[in-house]
Computed example of a mutant assay.
Amino acid sequence: MKPVTLAAKASSANHSLRPGRVTLVGAGPGDPDYLTVKAMRVLQTAEVVLFDDLVSPAVLELAPLEAERIPVGKRGGRVSCRQDDINALMIVLAKGGRHVVRLKSGDPMIFGRAGEEIAALEREGIAVEVVPGITAGLALAAELRTSLTHRDCAQSVRFVTGHARDGKLPRNLDWHALADPATTHIYYMAGRTAGELARRLLFHGLDASTPVVVASDVGRVTRQVTHIRLDQLAELEIELECPVIIGIGEAMRAAQGAEGTSLLRAG
């Protein structure tokens, strides 16, 4: 949906004396069975649902039939709704007395831009609540039956964004910390930057044989998983047909359930 369409919807919303509210709900990675009980209960009371591209149809179907559904997808490298327009739409709908559910894939507070939305709503005096969801990194660990903090090899876990506003690796990443062999790292949105990411980790001392898991469509029947080494990741390109998450660290060595190699191709 184009921003101009969002603006048109916002301007046409009817204002009401009844106070509206916004609930940010984590939809999980795709499988509706991953929803929390509270997320399902809140979704079933929605009057308007603003949903991301990555929210699965099976989750969206849990909203009431009479609830208005508005796609506000944001995807890297594609035409997306502007964040300011999404904020404005939530504000106008809530001021019109509606219960707005902002349905986000994964967990709203993990790379979901929830902070910007909460700040915009609070500036307008609109009641806002957050219902957490299962983020893709934790769903991946569960589906591979792999502990991200196995005490024999990982004393911490870190979630890292794989791209900045310009689509490249963030300039302020702490490469010394990222090359720590005693930490499991989960990289989100790193499809385009995977090769450079691996090369930088190698340069900063992470062992070439460090196990890597590259996965897409976690939490869905279309899930694909590939197991490689860090030095192999440095020489490969990842196709961008679907969202990709990358796990790096010794904890990944114990991962089971590898399937498919269609995510990867020679560079």
Rank of each mutant, 00 (worst) to 15 (best):
K38T: 11
A39N: 00
A39H: 03
A39L: 00
R41V: 04
E47G: 07
V49Q: 06
V49G: 08
L50E: 11
D52Y: 05
D52H: 03
D52L: 00
D52G: 04
V55C: 10
P57M: 15
P57W: 13
P57S: 15
P57I: 13
V59P: 03
L60A: 11
L60I: 15
L60M: 15
E61W: 15
E66D: 03
A67M: 15
R69G: 05
I70K: 13
P71W: 10
G73Y: 03
G73Q: 01
G73S: 09
K74R: 14
K74Y: 09
R75V: 12
R75N: 03
R75F: 08
G77I: 08
G77V: 04
R82A: 08
R82E: 01
Q83V: 08
Q83T: 01
Q83N: 01
D84G: 13
D84F: 03
D85C: 12
A88Q: 11
I91Y: 03
I91S: 04
V92F: 01
V92E: 05
L93D: 01
L93C: 00
A94L: 07
G97K: 07
S105V: 12
S105N: 09
G106F: 05
D107A: 10
P108H: 10
I110S: 12
F111G: 06
G112H: 01
R113K: 11
G115C: 03
E116T: 02
A119N: 01
A119C: 05
E122Q: 10
R123L: 06
G125H: 07
G125L: 10
A127I: 06
V128A: 08
V128I: 07
E129M: 06
E129A: 11
V130I: 12
V130T: 10
I134K: 04
G137V: 02
G137W: 00
G137M: 06
A139R: 05
L140R: 03
A141R: 05
A141E: 11
A141P: 09
A141D: 12
E143L: 14
L144E: 06
R145W: 11
R145S: 13
T146D: 04
S147N: 10
L148M: 14
T149P: 12
H150F: 14
R151S: 11
C153L: 10
Q155I: 15
V157A: 11
R158P: 00
V160F: 12
T161R: 00
T161P: 06
G162L: 14
G162F: 12
G162V: 14
G162I: 12
H163F: 13
A164N: 11
